[in-house]
């Protein structure tokens, strides 16, 4: 990670404009100006890691003035958790963790069974519970409009009702850069500072800034099996596998990092960030192409968002 103490004090001429970065920092500052109890939703993925860097820039030389929260499905890649804890320590962040497992154990939600079982959808309940218990009025997330077509309709400040629901047909217009965060008690706002970034923008930023990300984003050897032309981690504890789905070893990397049970790998020889950026530029598959949670139906994302997904 970067060291905030390491300052270069030579005076440069003019601030070079990166409009996407300026916009994201502007949004972070509006959050702190308009809300009492914001939180940054942190998954350990590249997008939320970029958010942490942008938040650091927005409030420097002060510390990031809100906690980060991880909704832990219990099916994480161990590399992600290791990375999360290191980042928290280095930046002296306040980390809040909520476990989906707790809700399963308490019988509040029912775990899916079988071939496509995933805890992705179970996160919603845990997230809503966390928001209510902690009294968060703004939850900052790394969703981008280019990811998925329901997300393309999302606002930067997206108001959710007491049940965390997204009312897609009744969204507040966002004109110019004016962000209206006024809400009633019990409501909360989801905030998306990198709404206008594309996948390539995110990767180029990681490259340019030298941001550290979990190792599973880079090519590595992994025990895997194939299903539906997708490559899955062979982890019999978290990922359901049929007896005839054979385990092999491949050199792979992940383009998105979610729950292990819904994130497929791609074969790749991109061992470092420069190679990853090259690979993304040449790619003909969208990043969510490897997310089985979106493939459930044409409207999978829209339905989850209505229920409170971010």
């Amino acid at each position: 990670m970067w060291d905030p103490q390491l300052k270069n004090r030579t005076m440069k001429e003019v601030v070079s404009n990166n409009p996407l970065e300026d916009e994201a920092i502007y949004i972070f500052r509006e959050v702190v100006g308009q809300f009492e109890k914001p939180v940054l939703l942190f998954s350990g993925g590249k997008d939320s890691t970029v958010l942490v860097r942008l938040a650091q820039k927005a409030f420097y030389p002060a510390k990031i003035p809100f906690p980060i929260m991880h909704i832990d499905t219990g099916h994480n890649f161990p590399e992600t958790i290791e990375f999360r804890d290191k980042l928290v320590e280095e930046l002296d962040l306040e980390l809040i963790v909520y476990h989906v497992q707790d809700n399963i154990d308490a019988g509040l939600v029912k775990e899916e069974k079988g071939k496509y079982a995933s805890r992705n959808i179970l996160q919603i309940e845990t997230l809503l519970q966390a928001i209510e218990e902690q009294g968060f009025d703004a939850c900052i997330g790394g969703a981008r409009r280019d990811e998925e077509k329901a997300r393309a309709k999302e606002r930067i400040f997206s108001v959710r009702d007491n049940f965390g629901q997204w009312d897609e047909k009744n969204q507040r217009p966002e004109v110019f850069d004016l962000l209206n965060g006024r809400i009633d008690f019990g409501q909360n706002v989801r905030v998306f500072p990198i709404s206008n970034w594309t996948e390539l923008d995110v990767w180029s930023y990681i490259q340019k800034e030298g941001i550290e990300i979990p190792s599973i984003y880079f090519a590595h050897k992994r025990k895997v099996f194939e299903r539906d032309n997708l490559i899955w981690s062979a982890n019999d504890e978290y990922v359901y596998r049929e007896k005839d789905e054979l385990v092999t070893e491949k050199i792979v990397r992940f383009r998105t990092v979610g729950d292990m049970s819904c994130t497929a790998a791609v074969e790749s020889l991109a061992f470092d960030i420069d190679k990853v950026v090259e690979e993304i530029k040449a790619s003909t598959i969208s990043e969510r192409g490897a997310r089985i949670d979106d493939k459930r139906s044409e409207a999978a994302m829209e339905k989850r968002k209505q229920q409170g997904y971010f």
Partner: peptide, 19 residues
């Protein structure tokens, strides 16, 4: 002073999120 993150600058023009 005019700064963007940990860098100071002499001058800034339209559009920058600065301190």
């Amino acid at each position: 002073s005019i700064s963007f993150f940990d860098q100071e600058y002499k001058k800034v023009s339209k559009g920058s999120s600065i301190t």
